[in-house]
C-alpha cells in the first residue's frame, strides 16, 4: 500500500526507539529474573555459593515430599476455597444492592466498601492485631459483652487462624471486586430489563437469572480468576500478623517461598517453589484469556 501524505512516514528509528525503554525494563526486571529462577530451580545453588551443579528435578522431588511445603500448599488451597466463593458472592451481592440503590446513597456505600482496598494492609494489620487481641481486643470485648465466656485467640489458634486470615482478606478485597462487578452491571443495557419486564419477568430473581447473570458472565469469570490469583498472592498480612504461625498453621505458599529464600537462604528450594507458583499463575491467566477471548460478544 502506498503511504498517503508525508506525515505518515516516521524515521526508521522511531518504532524501536519508542519500544526500547519498555522492552528493556521488561526483559531486565521480569523475563531475565524469571528465566534465572527457573534455571536455579534445577541446580543446588544457594545464595553466596561460588559454584553449582545441575541436579535435575531433585529440588521438586524434595519440596513435593516435604511435609512443611505440602502443609503450606494445603493452607493456600484451603484459604482459596474459603475466600473465592465468599468474596465472589459478597461482591456480587453488594454490587447488585448498590446498583439498585443508585444515586448518592449508592455512591456513599460504594466508597465505604472500597475504603479497605485503599488502605495499606501492613498498617491495617496493626489495627487488626488490636481488634482481634484475645484480652483487650474489641472482638473479645464484644463477645464477653454478649456473655461468651471462652477467650478465642483469633490469630494464635491453629484451627482458627486460617479463617481469621480469610476474613481479613475478604474484608480487604471485596470492595475491589464489587467495583468491577458494578462496571459489568453498568454495561447491561436498561432496555434488556424493560424488555424482560414486558415479556413477563416480574420478579427480581427471574430478571437476575435470565438477564443479569448470563450477561454478567464475562465479568464473573474474570472476577473468579482474579480472586484465585489474588488469594495465591497473599503475603503481607501473613508476614505482618502471624509469620506463618502458630506451628505453620497459617503458612502459605508465598510465605514459605520467602522463608526458604530469605530466612534459610535455600535459594534453589525457593526457586522451585517460585517456578511452580509461576506455572499455576500462568495457567490461570492463559485459561482466562482463552475463555474471555472466544466468548460471544454480548454487547449489541
Amino acid at each position: 500500500m502506498k503511504m498517503i501524505g508525508k506525515q505518515h512516514s516516521l524515521p526508521w528509528i522511531a518504532c524501536p526507539g519508542f519500544l526500547f525503554p519498555a522492552f528493556a525494563a521488561l526483559i531486565l526486571f521480569f523475563v531475565l529474573p524469571a528465566l534465572m529462577t527457573v534455571a536455579v530451580s534445577f541446580t543446588d545453588w544457594t545464595l553466596g555459593k561460588a559454584d553449582f551443579t545441575w541436579v535435575g528435578f531433585d529440588n521438586y522431588a524434595y519440596i513435593l515430599t516435604d511435609p512443611d511445603f505440602l502443609k503450606s500448599l494445603r493452607n493456600t488451597v484451603v484459604l482459596t476455597v474459603i475466600v473465592v466463593p465468599v468474596s465472589f458472592a459478597l461482591s456480587l451481592g453488594l454490587a447488585l444492592a448498590i446498583r439498585s440503590l443508585g444515586g448518592r446513597w449508592g455512591e456513599l456505600w460504594q466508597t465505604i466498601y472500597f475504603l479497605p482496598v485503599t488502605a495499606s494492609l501492613v498498617a491495617m494489620s496493626v489495627v487488626w492485631q488490636w481488634v482481634l487481641h484475645p484480652e483487650v481486643g474489641i472482638v473479645a470485648w464484644l463477645l464477653s459483652f454478649f456473655g461468651a465466656a471462652a477467650k478465642i485467640n483469633w490469630l494464635n489458634d491453629r484451627d482458627i487462624v486460617l479463617f481469621t486470615l480469610a476474613f481479613i482478606i475478604i474484608w480487604q478485597m471485596t470492595g475491589y471486586y464489587m467495583v468491577i462487578f458494578l462496571t459489568g452491571l453498568l454495561q447491561i443495557p436498561a432496555e434488556m430489563y424493560e424488555a424482560a419486564q414486558i415479556d413477563g419477568a416480574d420478579c427480581a430473581w427471574t430478571r437476575f437469572r435470565h438477564i443479569t447473570w448470563p450477561l454478567l458472565t464475562p465479568t464473573s469469570f474474570f472476577i473468579f480468576i482474579l480472586t484465585i490469583i489474588k488469594t495465591f498472592q497473599v503475603f503481607d498480612i501473613v508476614k505482618a500478623l502471624t509469620r506463618g504461625g502458630p506451628e505453620k498453621a497459617s503458612e502459605i505458599l508465598l510465605y514459605t517461598m520467602y522463608q526458604e529464600g530469605f530466612s534459610f537462604f535455600r535459594t534453589n528450594i525457593a526457586a522451585s517453589i517460585a517456578t511452580l507458583y509461576l506455572l499455576v499463575m500462568l495457567g490461570l491467566t492463559l485459561w482466562q484469556n482463552y475463555v474471555l477471548g472466544r466468548r460471544v460478544n454480548y454487547t449489541l
Binding site: I198, H210, Y298
Partner: peptide, 29 residues
C-alpha cells in the same frame, strides 16, 4: 406492572437477549 398489562413492545434497539438463540428469544414471553 408491565407484564400484567399484557402488552407487547418493540424497542428501537430491538433489545434482543444476546445470550439466547432466536428460538429462545421468541419463546421467552
Amino acid at each position: 406492572t408491565p407484564s400484567r398489562r399484557n402488552i407487547a413492545m418493540v424497542f428501537q434497539s430491538y433489545a434482543l437477549y444476546p445470550h439466547k438463540t432466536v428460538r429462545e428469544n421468541i419463546a421467552f414471553p
